[in-house]
């Protein structure tokens, strides 16, 4: 086992052309992911500070129900596993069809997450709980749609990566891209744990 200095599935062998370059790119991408985590951390801090500032608007306990977030949790968790399977098909079989298939499943799960998330956000808007209602809701509308936006970008990326694999096959550009995509996607699931715990479960206590 080589001393890989990046997270994610270890794809490469030192002798492969471009594997050193991929490793550097993936490690650089991990630095970006960690700085993105800092942004989320600051938005979480804002949310917790603003939580009591409801300004006669609905409070978290009145507004949130667990059903939607639990569906979203299930979809995102399942998609984290399926993108792992896509990477395994890339690594062990170099199977274009199966890799693309698992990426398609991941895309659909991500799209399902976005559908459910958008549905509940629109529901809040209809109930007069838009971002301008109170400081608490401003912070909520900053945090949850920011994560959903990340998922939307991730879905777009999955589509592009799948097309690349389908057309170009596997070279160090497409496999390196898949590796970074999987890191991005797993990272989004980890941020979602925080949202489920702090925003939705916290509101039920």
């Amino acid at each position: 086992m080589s001393q890989a200095r990046h997270p994610g599935l270890k794809l490469g062998h030192e002798h492969d052309p471009g594997s050193g370059e991929v490793e550097a790119l993936v490690f650089g991408f991990w630095i970006f992911m960690m700085s993105d985590l800092l942004i989320f951390g600051c938005v979480f801090a804002t949310y917790v500070v603003m939580l009591p500032q409801v300004a006669d608007g609905p409070s978290a306990a009145e507004l949130f129900h667990l059903r939607g977030p639990l569906i979203e949790t299930t979809l995102l968790l399942a998609s984290s596993v399926t993108i792992g399977f896509a990477l395994l098909e890339t690594k062990h079989r170099a199977d274009q069809r199966r890799t693309t298939l698992w990426l398609a499943v991941t895309f659909l799960l991500g799209a399902g997450f976005l559908f459910s998330s958008t549905h509940s956000l629109l529901g809040h808007l209809e109930n007069g709980a838009g971002p301008s209602r109170s400081a608490f809701l401003s912070a909520y509308w900053l945090l949850v749609p920011l994560h959903a936006l990340h998922v939307a970008v991730g879905c777009l990326w999955i589509a592009v990566a799948a097309a690349q694999v389908w057309i170009r096959g596997f070279d160090w550009v497409t496999t390196g891209g898949l590796l970074r995509l999987s890191i991005y996607w797993h990272f989004l699931d980890i941020v979602w744990i925080g949202i489920l715990s702090v925003v939705y479960l916290g509101a039920m206590i």
């Binding site: 086992m1 200095r5 990046h6 490690f27 797993h186 980890i190 925080g194």
Partner: peptide, 26 residues
């Protein structure tokens, strides 16, 4: 506790980040 454990579990099993057997940087 459950949230932190789940984040660690996902770092371990999904992102394959281990305490041993790999370089320290990540």
């Amino acid at each position: 506790v459950a949230g932190i454990l789940q984040a660690v579990a996902q770092l371990h099993w999904f992102l394959h980040i281990r305490l041993h057997g790999q370089a320290w940087e990540d």
